[in-house]
Design a protein around this nucleic acid. Sequence first.
DNA 1: CGTAGGTTTGAGGTTGGTCAACAGGTGTGG
DNA 2: CCACACCTGTTGACCAACCTCAAACCTACG
Lengths: 239, 239
Amino acid sequence: MIDRLILTLSTRDALTTDEIATLESVVKRDRVVPSGEDIVIEGSRPTESTLLLDGVAARYRVLEDGKRQITALHVPGDFVDLHAFLLKTMDHSVVALSPCRIASAAHRDLCEISATNPHLTRMLWLSTVIDGAIHREWIVAIGRRSKKSHLAHLICELYVRLTVVGMVSEMSFHLPMSQAEVADALGVSLVHLNKTLQILRLDGVVRWVDRIVTILNWERLAEIAEFDGRYLNLSHEPR
Amino acid sequence: MIDRLILTLSTRDALTTDEIATLESVVKRDRVVPSGEDIVIEGSRPTESTLLLDGVAARYRVLEDGKRQITALHVPGDFVDLHAFLLKTMDHSVVALSPCRIASAAHRDLCEISATNPHLTRMLWLSTVIDGAIHREWIVAIGRRSKKSHLAHLICELYVRLTVVGMVSEMSFHLPMSQAEVADALGVSLVHLNKTLQILRLDGVVRWVDRIVTILNWERLAEIAEFDGRYLNLSHEPR
DNA sequence: CGTAGGTTTGAGGTTGGTCAACAGGTGTGG
DNA sequence: CCACACCTGTTGACCAACCTCAAACCTACG
């Protein structure tokens, strides 16, 4: 069940069989959330953290005028709200952008891990700081990149993250998001997102049809995005 | 020396005297970095994390065309690169925006803490996830707020964060940043930042002269910013 | 067959960027 | 003491990027 969590973590550092067993025993009750439904709600005080097993989910906030900003996208193997283990109260909601299979880890059990297994604790901590690294990259992208470069960057990021959990084949991956949702992730209007996407298509660097993204020219795409995947911290080292 | 770190942490949860003593013994070698100098450099592999004792520092990245984006601002009591304890390699630099007094905590010692004091470990972990919460709020601000609202929001945030460490008096605080640096934090041009600031001044909500910021009308400012400080996680509870 | 959700396109207006110039303050060397 | 460079803040003019509104089109589905 937690194969993809293991993949994401063990890409960064080796897990012992004991640690894997601990994670397996702690992650429980898998179920499916339909597309469009909230997995976690702003203001709630969850007593467990949610692991995404399958599907794509997004953290988001809505402003008073109805504008929505997606602050993070999650792929299988990600905890969508591990930070709530320490923050206690959710300061944003998490929505299922596609049907999502999820499971839960009780904060009581996570607390137990933090008391008994320092290395596994650091690995969980690591996954929250990688979230942070991705947030920073998004800030740079929204703040200083052109929209074309930003969109290219997002595609590069998702390509790499989905590769880690084995969900890319032949430069192609399923991205179950509407253009309106992608626009909310980039902080642009739907209309402008669409026009920006046209440009990438015309450049011949990506195909994006029926929610299947195919990278036709990785070199050019990464160049447009000025993409440097180091922030995803894929290197395997003692943590 | 670490008074402000204690302030920030114990605002969120009680620290035992033992824990305070541990922190005190781990944070060493305070020194001053002159304004404008880098405290940590992108690509480096620090073996210790840096605690900011005094001054203001910023995490930032520079793109190929020379544009800079500040991804985080740090006030006294913040660790500027605690995440590097787990990420190992810095994916951004940290610069002193004013003369900064800093001290260091060796990763070896932090690792020791993670092995021996679960609660203190969680408190350090907490401080990295609060960083993350601030990042998310910045993403929302850059992506979906008007520049006026975004600037107001930044002022509100700094007001609250500086209050926690006792650096605000009578709605006034010292903010040792040039307008160009603030512009890099908001992801706008210097010219536009200046014009936006004029508007807030004309509205009579802030005074901002000689790097001293005075909030003249908190109510209106918070309203313009649509500010809700919950994301700063100031509530005191067991973590 | 009508409706709903998603994509695409065009037109026109606003926000915010770039370029350029100037003002005030500070430090430096002649 | 002045002349000068330099840094920061300020302002105006012009232009590009991006937004909003609006409509058309497509497909899936009851």
